[in-house]
Simulated scan of single mutants.
Amino acid sequence: MNSGNIRVLILDLGSASRNELVRQLEEHPHIKVVGQAAHRRLAIRLLQQLMPDLLILTLDTSSADNVEVVETIMATSAIPILVMRFCPENQWDDDYISRGALAVLHHSSDSPLSTDALHRKVELLVGVKVIRHIKGLRYPTEPVMPVVRATMDAAQMPQDWPFVLAIACSTGGPQALSKLLQALPGSFPCPVLIAQHIADGFAKDMVRWLDSVTELKVRLAQEDDRVKAGYVYILPPEQHLIVKNNQRLAAIPRQDSDVYHPSCNLLLESVAEVFREKAVGLIMTGMGSDGCRGIELIFRRGGRTLAQDEESSVVFGMNKNAIDKQLIHRTIPLDGLAKALLAMACHGHFESKLP
């Protein structure tokens, strides 16, 4: 058994050649198969425990269900994925790639894959930097939530919300948020989700402070919270949170490599995917570039994007990145943000500087 510098996890969904694949891989002096899984849940657990460099998904059939496996894994782990299908059907190959896999290889008795070719592909893929794909969490592995009761207040139904507001901010953010929330009435008819970079353990104090200065209900967001209009959800830094299709929040464990806590990008990307043209992204004062990717997805999905202007920002960084990339419909001073949001929510008014 080799010592191995490239750690590989195999998720085998029915191939007849798994043992042969392991033998082929470990003929390379620097490749080590560190684990094998027969289903998605075990693979996700092993990814967290073993931290491999590459996941190889082996298939004896190609289907939409297997595409979903790739999507779900990429929503929970940033890992290069190689799909190896031991079947002739190739109609799903593009879907594997679009959901996050880096490559699809066909291996069969008619067109066998040489050991050298396999080694070269593994060496190539482990050097590719990948990111999580939020969209996968739109297909949750947990049981689907029951249908909302008809007695629920109609004002709380998602189809009646003018939009869902997702805010990204960092340095200078708490003070800016306090001014913004003070200016919004308790009747503001939209949910507000905020990803503010903050040190572990300090979110509860910020929630108490912000709740004391606004008529809106400010809450520390938690997994499985249902998003409601009139509420402000402050994400905790100890984990990342995103919105799922059932309007509930889902947690994504923090990784040692994550720079920003909580992630603005993950929140904004999920709001873009779930609410699309009903998503409004606001990027405020802060250092770095977190949130820019999420703002871009809101922009591409037909939502509206706002940015705090330079003059009113403590640090003109996160918002500057988005503005420079021409992803912002309107740049607004801090003291004008509440007025603009109210005009959008109550009257549908939105003046865009972009075509």
Rank of each mutant, 00 (worst) to 15 (best):
M1D: 15
S3C: 08
R7E: 14
L11A: 13
D12T: 02
S15M: 09
A16L: 14
N19T: 09
L21Y: 13
V22G: 01
L25H: 05
H28M: 09
P29Y: 10
I31F: 14
I31K: 06
K32G: 11
A37T: 08
A37I: 01
R41V: 13
R45V: 03
R45F: 10
P52E: 14
L54Q: 07
I56M: 15
N66Q: 14
N66H: 15
V67D: 02
V69R: 07
V69S: 12
V70H: 04
E71L: 08
T72C: 09
I73V: 14
I73W: 12
S77Y: 03
A78Q: 09
I81P: 08
L82P: 04
M84H: 03
R85Q: 11
P88Y: 10
N90T: 14
N90E: 15
W92G: 00
D94T: 13
Y96R: 03
S98A: 15
R99N: 12
L102P: 03
A103N: 15
A103P: 00
A103I: 00
H107F: 13
S109V: 13
S109T: 11
S109W: 10
P112V: 09
L113Q: 04
R120I: 01
K121E: 15
L124Y: 12
L125C: 05
L125K: 02
I131E: 12
I131S: 10
R132L: 10
K135W: 05
K135F: 11
K135E: 13
G136H: 06
G136D: 03
T141C: 12
P146F: 01
T151S: 05
A154R: 08
P158V: 05
W161H: 04
P162E: 03
V164D: 10
L165E: 03
A166D: 10
A166G: 15
A168F: 10
T171K: 04
G173T: 00
A176K: 01
A176R: 01
S178Y: 00
K179I: 07
L184N: 07
P185Y: 09
G186S: 08
P191V: 01
A195Y: 05
I198E: 03
A203I: 11
V207N: 03
S212H: 07
T214S: 15
E215V: 00
R219L: 13
R219C: 07
D225R: 08
R226A: 02
A229G: 08
G230P: 04
I234D: 02
E238N: 07
L241S: 03
V243S: 03
V243P: 02
K244S: 13
N246H: 08
N246S: 06
N246T: 01
Q247P: 00
Q255A: 13
D256R: 12
D256W: 02
S257W: 06
P262N: 06
S263E: 12
N265H: 06
S270G: 04
A272L: 00
E273Y: 04
V274L: 01
V274I: 06
F275D: 10
K278P: 03
V280P: 08
G281T: 01
I283L: 12
I298G: 12
I298L: 12
R300L: 15
R301P: 00
G302Q: 08
T305A: 15
L306N: 02
E310A: 12
S313T: 02
G317L: 04
M318R: 00
N321R: 02
A322N: 06
H329K: 10
D335V: 02
D335S: 07
A340I: 06
L341D: 07
L342A: 06
M344L: 15
H349S: 11
K353W: 02
